[in-house]
Design a protein around this nucleic acid. Structure first.
Length: 646
RNA sequence: GCUGGUGUAGCUCAGCGGCAGAGCGGGGGAUUUGUAAUCCCCAGGUCGCGGGUUCAAAUCCCGCCGCCAGCUCCA
């Protein structure tokens, strides 16, 4: 039997060996593999991941995968999840196993237990896991017929596993065993429990079996694992860092916004400092959009029930709408979307092809009933303002419009320092044409155009079949923040349904009526979520153009307050948001306060500065940058603000 | 919405059947300070809301509301 081993991208070796040899043995046998040996967690046999201790039965090309690869990480954590389940079964033999997959930064395992886990249980389980790891129990793959596996798990009383087996198509299934613990599992796994070097259980919470709330609730334990304690610690530190950036905490500390019990969950109060940030962003947006041919409109927040019947929202969005209000025998509903209003503006006159594309924009405040458990600070609310717009255009114009929109999204998000994106194109499920509004021809054209534009712009994207809205395909843009977390942001959605329902037309060059295509789009998404993301992205330290207070002037002693005030009023005359810290305290204390409030510039004024008409500049998070004249500082500051420097 | 946790001063939290506390923040005073906390004094509470148990409830029980984590969903 001949085995080729890919040592690196450019280096390959071939060895002749007996059937039944394992990848692990090969690693130990050949000298060239020394470098691979330390990091290998799993082998890829002709691209298929297999256990290192699984016997190889035919000619094959092997690659070895470590923790630096997603596949390797998944195997490592999947095995940790099995160790978790093993420990839980030892402590709670009556626990029934759910599923236990690896996830983005760790793993979880679901258990059906009579009582939810408590913190001291989690510690007990961790201790037991450590024992299992120390025992270095071999992990063994066993293949058996579906029937045998069913009997095995039936006997063990593992009803969830039996349910999974019953739904499998394969005749042969695999089971992994470590000591007395067995689990239905596709694998692969590490060769033995001792391979797991550093892990931590993070928390537990309820989760429905298969994510369906009609099913019983299982108890899920989350954890993570790494090859070294240092890596684990680094990850834990990162979690802590994320917590420090929590926009709910920073929003309160910096006085940006609040959500009050007396008003209602998910309804945001923008305090003066948060409102300034929002206003500056909206102002920028207005300028950019007007430059690109958008026209701003204002529309009401409620409309008669009949409008929502015509738009169809009543039949497909009702569960997200607030209950109606009755006025003079007419029922009005609070709007969950702005589109019908913009449509009626479009419809208010006969439109010619010369009017298209028509781009109507609005900072549109909408209200959506979101289930209470889903609300989260600014990220998920019930009252939100979208940077919404609706573009009415001919089918032929769709491509150009989409191109403009994607460029706009990259441009605008880039101004806030977002550079890494993930783009998802959602198209229809071709096997169920009856689920969709609009003709197959117009879908075909639109999907082709979206794909073409993305390729033209060289934008890497995922294409997901069947994820389109019933009314049209869409492009969603996700962004990654400063610490690598992914957020949904821009959405660009084609709509073939509403133009139909509202019977929208334009007069073409042929003098006849035609149906326009409508594009719904939001670039920042909603002001609430976007600013929530920004708070976390900047960790509350907004760039100077957005900072609610741009400059704090710190007098060294009380006798310098007058000079400090004159500096402040000079800056203020030029539109700078400035404050004087006039309370009598040490310079250090005053500086500390400014730093905690994340003010970008601190100007210290004492005898020296008064004498020379200057200020000593301290930039946020850095030390003293030295003395500079007020005029020079102002010039530099204004330039930074105008350029919207980050 | 569901499961679990949780709710005490503006914030972070202690108190867990027997007089409502601390630190920070706030106000006042002293100090006059040179780059992340000067000192002293003071005010601040329907212990989330409603009901119950008890001689006595922040504390125990029940219901409701909010918040947190997760499931589900999404701008």
């Amino acid at each position: 039997m001949r085995i080729r081993i890919q040592i690196s991208d450019s280096e390959q070796i071939e060895i002749e060996c007996d059937e039944g040899v394992t990848s692990l043995q090969l690693l130990n046998m050949c000298e060239q593999c020394t470098r691979l040996r330390d990091k290998a967690l799993v082998a890829l046999a002709n691209g298929e991941p297999i256990d290192l201790n699984r016997p190889i039965t035919g000619d094959v090309t092997l690659r070895f995968i470590g923790f630096d690869d997603e596949v390797g990480r998944d195997v490592y954590r999947h095995t940790t999840a099995h160790i978790l389940a093993h420990a839980v079964k030892q402590i709670f033999p009556e626990a029934k196993l759910g599923i236990g997959p690896p996830i983005e930064n760790g793993f979880y395992y679901d258990f059906d237990v009579p009582k939810p886990f408590e913190p001291h249980h989690i510690e007990m389980i961790e201790r037991k896991m450590r024992e299992l790891i120390e025992s270095d129990t071999p992990i063994e793959r066993i293949e058996m017929s579906k029937h045998e596996a069913r009997e095995l798990f039936e006997r063990l009383g593992e009803r969830y596993k039996v349910e999974l087996i019953d739904e499998m198509d394969e005749d042969i299934v695999s089971v992994y065993r470590q000591g007395e613990f067995v689990d239905l599992c596709r694998g692969p796994h590490l060769p033995s429990t001792g391979w797991v070097k550093a892990f931590k259980l993070l928390h537990s919470a309820g989760a429905y079996w298969r994510g369906d709330e009609r099913n019983p609730m299982l108890q899920r334990i989350y954890g993570t694992s790494f090859p070294t304690h240092e890596q684990l610690q680094a990850y834990l530190n990162q979690l802590e860092e994320a917590q420090k950036r929590d926009h709910r905490r920073l929003g309160r500390e910096l006085g940006l916004f609040s959500v009050e019990e007396d008003i209602g969950p998910g309804l945001v109060l923008w305090h003066p400092k948060g409102a300034i940030i929002r206003q500056l962003i909206e102002d920028m947006l207005r300028v950019e959009l007007v430059e690109r041919g958008y026209q701003f409109v204002y529309t009401p927040h409620i409309a008669k029930v009949t409008l929502w019947q015509t738009s169809g929202h009543l039949s497909w969005y009702r569960e997200n709408m607030f209950a109606g209000i009755e006025i003079e025998g007419q029922e009005y509903l609070v709007r969950p979307m702005n589109c019908p209003f913009h449509i009626l503006i479009y419809k208010s006159a006969t439109r010619s092809y010369r009017d298209l594309p028509m781009r109507l924009a609005e900072m549109g405040t909408v209200y959506r009933y979101e289930r209470s458990g889903t609300l989260h600070g600014l990220m998920r609310v019930r009252g939100l303002t979208q940077d919404d717009a609706h573009i009415f255009c001919t089918p032929e114009q769709v491509g150009d419009e989409i191109e403009g929109l994607i460029e706009l999204a990259y441009h605008l998000l880039g101004r806030f320092g977002f550079e890494q994106f993930e783009v998802v194109l959602s198209v229809r499920d071709r096997s169920h044409p009856e689920k969709y509004a609009g003709t197959p021809e117009v879908w075909e054209l639109a999907e082709r155009e979206l794909e073409r534009v993305l390729n033209k712009l060289g934008i890497e994207h995922k294409r997901i079949e069947g994820e389109a809205n019933f009314y049209g395909p869409k492009i969603d843009v996700y962004l990654f923040d400063a610490i690598g977390r992914k957020w949904q942001c821009s959405t660009i959605q084609l709509d073939f349904n509403l133009p139909e329902r509202f019977d929208l037309t334009y007069i073409g060059s042929d003098g006849r009526g035609h149906r326009p295509v409508m594009i719904h789009r939001a670039i920042l998404g909603s002001m609430e979520r976007f600013i929530g993301i920004l708070i976390e992205h900047y960790a509350g330290a907004f760039p100077v153009w957005l900072a609610p207070i741009q400059v704090s002037v710190v007098p060294v002693a009380d006798r310098h307050i007058e000079y400090a005030s004159s500096v402040a009023s000079e800056l203020s005359k030029h539109g700078i948001r400035v404050e004087v810290i006039s309370r009598s305290d040490t310079v250090s204390a005053k500086i500390r306060e400014c730093e905690l409030r994340k003010v970008p510039y601190i100007l210290v004024c004492g005898d020296r500065e008064v004498r020379s008409g200057s200020v000593s500049v301290r930039q946020r998070g850095r030390k003293d940058l030295g003395e500079i004249s007020v005029a020079d500082f102002l010039r530099m500051l204004i330039e930074q603000i105008e350029r919207k420097n980050l």
